[in-house]
Amino acid sequence: MRKWHRWLSVFFAVFLLFIAATGLLSHGASLWPVAEPSAAELAAQQPPAGFTCPEGWRCSPPRPETGPRAWVGFFHHLHSGEEFGPAGTAISILSGFALLFFAFSGLWLYIRMWRERARRGAQHRWFWK
């Protein structure tokens, strides 16, 4: 198990780092604050002809995204691999499976080392050198 863990990590490390970075960029851009429209901008926005806004509602057309929020879709397409076609999507899916494998195999290796220490009678600790 340790051999597979080591060899697959060499290959997938680059892809997992890329996926982590683009995911962080996507979420960071979507959390970027948006300036509220002024009263004059709200008054200038007219609903489509024949549409009446329900009482108590503020009806306005969607505003175009500016600044970092405009990049959310692009970052998402990079994150999912869609920007690179079917091969990018396949690599993204394989990277997801690799991440699951690393999580489970790392836990498995840790449990095996824990049991080996217990069998030898070593001091019980969560982490050791």
Rank of each mutant, 00 (worst) to 15 (best):
residue 90 A to N: 01
residue 58 R to H: 07
residue 106 G to E: 00
residue 22 T to G: 07
residue 98 A to I: 06
residue 34 V to C: 06
residue 35 A to F: 01
residue 56 G to D: 01
residue 28 G to L: 11
residue 109 L to T: 06
residue 119 R to E: 06
residue 128 W to P: 00
residue 95 S to F: 08
residue 126 W to N: 11
residue 14 V to I: 02
residue 128 W to C: 09
residue 27 H to W: 08
residue 47 P to Q: 13
residue 80 S to V: 09
residue 70 A to R: 14
residue 69 R to F: 04
residue 1 M to C: 07
residue 126 W to G: 14
residue 89 T to W: 06
residue 40 A to Q: 11
residue 20 A to W: 15
residue 104 F to P: 02
residue 16 L to S: 13
residue 126 W to L: 12
residue 124 H to A: 14
residue 77 H to I: 04
residue 113 M to S: 15
residue 124 H to F: 13
residue 38 S to G: 15
residue 117 R to I: 00
residue 101 F to P: 07
residue 80 S to L: 00
residue 32 W to I: 01
residue 118 A to T: 05
residue 11 F to D: 03
residue 25 L to M: 10
residue 97 F to G: 15
residue 34 V to K: 11
residue 86 P to T: 09
residue 46 Q to R: 14
residue 56 G to H: 04
residue 66 T to E: 11
residue 115 R to Q: 11
residue 105 S to K: 01
residue 71 W to S: 14
residue 102 F to V: 05
residue 26 S to Y: 02
residue 12 F to Y: 13
residue 31 L to R: 15
residue 76 H to Y: 10
residue 81 G to K: 08
residue 10 V to Y: 14
residue 58 R to F: 00
residue 49 A to T: 14
residue 84 F to R: 03
residue 112 R to D: 10
residue 85 G to K: 05
residue 6 R to P: 06
residue 17 L to Q: 11
residue 126 W to T: 07
residue 44 A to F: 05
residue 107 L to S: 07
residue 54 P to C: 09
residue 61 P to L: 08
residue 129 K to F: 13
residue 36 E to L: 13
residue 34 V to E: 14
residue 83 E to N: 05
residue 128 W to D: 09
residue 127 F to N: 04
residue 96 G to H: 03
residue 116 E to R: 10
residue 7 W to N: 11
residue 5 H to C: 07
residue 16 L to M: 15
residue 16 L to C: 12
residue 89 T to M: 14
residue 55 E to P: 04
residue 61 P to V: 00
residue 8 L to I: 00
residue 75 F to W: 13
residue 73 G to L: 07
residue 7 W to E: 09
residue 71 W to V: 04
residue 27 H to E: 14
residue 35 A to S: 15
residue 46 Q to S: 12
residue 42 L to N: 13
residue 67 G to V: 01
residue 99 L to F: 15
residue 14 V to D: 01
residue 121 G to L: 03
residue 75 F to L: 02
residue 22 T to K: 08
residue 18 F to W: 11
residue 41 E to C: 12
residue 117 R to W: 00
residue 127 F to R: 12
residue 49 A to I: 02
residue 107 L to H: 12
residue 15 F to W: 12
residue 17 L to P: 07
residue 4 W to H: 12
residue 23 G to F: 02
residue 70 A to M: 08
residue 72 V to N: 02
residue 9 S to I: 04
residue 52 T to N: 09
residue 123 Q to C: 06
residue 77 H to D: 12
residue 129 K to V: 04
residue 65 E to L: 15
residue 129 K to H: 02
residue 90 A to G: 02
residue 116 E to T: 10
residue 73 G to F: 09
residue 113 M to G: 10
residue 87 A to Q: 09
residue 94 L to F: 07
residue 24 L to S: 08
residue 71 W to R: 05
residue 81 G to T: 00
residue 103 A to Q: 03
